[in-house]
């Protein structure tokens, strides 16, 4: 029998560059408090959010994805034609098919690269990085574009007090490529479908045929908080162990920007030394689900470029429930 050809594998992959696009509108708490009978102070105290970014009506999620992707490509010094795979991580694509990735792939000049979307909510970006790392190290691809993008303002309900007021719109993109040394640690990722309803849509698209309202997002905040801090702290420690890294080795901690109270308690549980920069992009961006980690990474590197080359622990967690974590070398 003929032996099939196998690919030459690589020792490592790393994030070569990061790009970002935020919604063009700053939406302060005061703009949202009326329908939820709340106040600026109530939202700040419970979430740490001062304002969130949202995109104007004419700006689609794929537009945000394209802007972020173009910045990442430029910073990597690559033309779109050098991208071998396009992965878009999103839960706010308003069409079920075709994928946002195939449209983005065409817009950035990466056609005919394989392109597909991942539905892993706030863990989507971490899932995308896990796959890109594997694709590059296996030799299946040289450069993979991973974009976390959401226009969550499409699925908010202004009268909802559980999650809607947290949400923002944006995109974060990374180009992942070959590296002599490992630049992305083994991913710690998983799911817990027993908690499928903890963060969910109010109804299905099918139910709209019977006259149901446009589906919007809801969460059981208290349950999510416990899971996101104490269960995810265990996963974050597993990711550090898998990487062979101690908390003191980190330059930055970049958790999904779900809620400032989660971020603060999470950091406390991990006993991070003061030297570790903690991403707190949520204060003025809001929770942008799959986009939040690369957006927060982008901000950290803009504000403290000296962190480039340092190690960052990133962890995404959300609806599914699903989670994914890695230690990465900052681009």
């Amino acid at each position: 029998m003929t032996t099939m050809t196998s690919l030459s594998t690589r020792n490592g992959a790393r994030i070569l560059s990061v790009g970002a696009a935020r919604g063009d509108l700053d939406v302060p708490n005061d703009d949202l408090v009326g329908p939820i009978d709340s106040s600026d102070e109530w939202i700040r105290q419970r979430t740490g959010i001062i304002s969130r970014v949202r995109a104007s009506e004419g700006i689609e999620a794929v537009d945000l994805a394209e802007t972020a992707a173009r910045e990442a490509l430029e910073r990597a010094g690559l033309d779109g034609s050098r991208i071998d795979v396009v992965i878009v991580c999103t839960v706010s694509n308003t069409v079920q098919t075709p994928s946002m990735a195939s449209l983005l792939c065409e817009r950035i000049g990466a056609t005919p690269a394989p392109a597909f979307d991942i539905s892993a909510a706030c863990a989507g970006y971490a899932y995308g990085v896990a796959q890109a790392d594997a694709l590059v190290r296996s030799g299946m691809a040289e450069h993979v574009l991973v974009v976390g993008v959401e226009k969550l303002s499409e699925i908010v309900d202004p009268t909802d007090r559980s999650i809607s007021f947290l949400l923002g719109d944006g995109a974060g993109a990374v180009v992942i490529g070959p590296s002599d040394e490992p630049g992305i640690s083994p991913s710690v990722w998983g799911s817990d479908g027993a908690q499928w309803e903890t963060i969910r849509m109010t109804n299905t698209l099918g139910s709209m045929r019977e006259g149901a309202a446009w589906p919007t997002l809801r969460q059981d905040g208290q349950k999510v908080f416990r899971w996101a801090v104490w269960e995810m702290a265990k996963k974050a420690r597993e990711a550090l162990d898998a990487a062979g890294v101690e908390p003191a080795d980190l330059a930055a901690f970049i958790p999904h920007q779900a809620n400032m109270r989660i971020i603060d308690e999470f950091a406390k549980q991990l006993k991070l030394p003061d030297s570790v920069v903690i991403a707190r992009d949520i204060a003025t961006t809001g929770n942008t689900s799959a986009a939040s980690i690369p957006l927060a990474m982008h901000r950290i590197l803009e504000e403290q470029p000296e962190l480039s080359g340092g190690l960052a622990l990133q962890i995404g967690f959300g609806a599914g429930l699903v989670y994914g974590a890695q230690v990465v070398v900052l681009p």
């Binding site: 419970r46 905040g221 208290q222």
Partner: peptide, 9 residues
């Protein structure tokens, strides 16, 4: 509710 959960844990 968030502080309550922290106290519970």
């Amino acid at each position: 509710s968030i502080s309550m959960m922290t106290i519970v844990v």
